[in-house]
Amino acid sequence: MKKVYAKEEVCVGCKLCEVYCITSHSKYKDVLKAYKLDSTRPAPRIIIEEERPISFSLQCRHCDDAPCVKACITGAMQKDPETGVVTCDTDKCVGCWTCVLVCSFGAIVRDLNNKIASKCDLCAETGEPACVKNCPNEALVFTEGGI
């Protein structure tokens, strides 16, 4: 399946991916409004690791054998059998963080504001990962089969 891969050689640690991830999952699809108006502003579903000069962003790898899906105590975490995308049904999620415990990428973010597990859904709504689209340095690629 197509996944987002990071090129640490050219990630500049700007965290714009984070800004656009939040925007893409906010009810307003606009940066300004997402930040200024959205009282339930979502947490970023992307983690930027930085230890200069190295930096990269990391998000859910949508594992084939996803441990979070097996571990989720409510059934909120599911892997779509067709697309392979792992998503969290936020209506069901109770914020127990069992998924945080088992995800070996540390890719599940605790959205404490909304008390739900927050994770990359490859921007299911728009079909185009916002981080990839808005990375200023092409440090993220959305492709099949690794890079």
């Binding site: 690791e49 230890e51 995800c103 540390g106």
Partner: peptide, 29 residues
Amino acid sequence: AGIYTGLIREKIDVTPFRNQLLKDDFGYI
């Protein structure tokens, strides 16, 4: 937390980064 769980599960030798395990932002970096 799952990063540690993964290190346990996969029995990864942590020698190269052992002294960083407790860092606040310990991660793949």
